[in-house]
Amino acid sequence: MNALFLAPVLFAFTMVMVIPFFLGIYYSMTDFNGVRTDLTFVGLKNYETMFSDPLFLHSFLVTVEYTVINVIFVNVVAFALSLMVTSNLKGRNFLRAGFFVPNLIGGIVLGYIWQFVFNNVITQTAASLGLNFLTKSLISNKDTVIWAMSLVNVWQYAGYIMMIYVAAIQGIPANLMEAASVDGANYWTRLTKILIPMMASSFTITTFLTLTNSFKQFDLNMSLTNGGPAGMYMMKAVKTSELLALNIYNTAITKNMWGDGQARAVIFFIVLVCISLVQVAINKRKEVEM
């Protein structure tokens, strides 16, 4: 009888997750172009060509770079914000809501808004202030484009992660902190010896969320830079900010190489699962029980 209650969810899960997952693995071993119905089985050929494609290797490296930057900055900023809005600051409830709002805007819209900010607002303001180093748009410079994209992501995502930290901080019994301050522990000691260890389980969650979120970044990437500007990698013209998800999309859909794109997606999946498992295992060890 209990299984019957599960049926609707199981049905949906099977239809939209399980079946497409195995179909995807099958497509990754064919020459499917996205439209044609007669497929040829090509075995592991798509997996072999992938690793000799500079575009894919480049996207892989850029994605790793982007993920590292974002895991660090999103968490640092979010943690700082959460400390701020749980202190005795005036208007902290308003700030809490304010920091969270960017998260409610869809990635595509956000990308176009920030594209305008980077290409027009910043450059023109800089020009009128005489700041020459900022008159070239940050997203058309291949050295700054990843940082510009990270800035937008931090702006959007830090508020969300902040909420998780806020919940964790509020879950710590007040008497612990009070006892510590009666014993003469200063703020820094309370922070590092009580607050952070007590919050370890939320760090597991937030690191996992930021890691997977940055690794899978697509909508912001597509609307903000679409992979541009162009750059060189292994003597080939590449799109310097084309992250893995966008590379997979362009390979499968735009270039009509669905099989190749699907193979990349399978590798993408495996890498993401491995990294996440390792991360969660490491973080779990640091958690303390009440």
Binding site: P229, A230, G231, M232, A237, V238, K239, T254, K255, N256
Partner: peptide
């Protein structure tokens, strides 16, 4: 040309020339 070849494969090379990178 193959579907989207001009935009995907050649386009970035033009952009490199425009940037004076090549």
């Amino acid at each position: 040309m193959p579907d989207n070849f001009g935009m995907q494969n050649l386009g970035p090379i033009f952009e490199l020339l425009a940037q004076d990178a090549i």
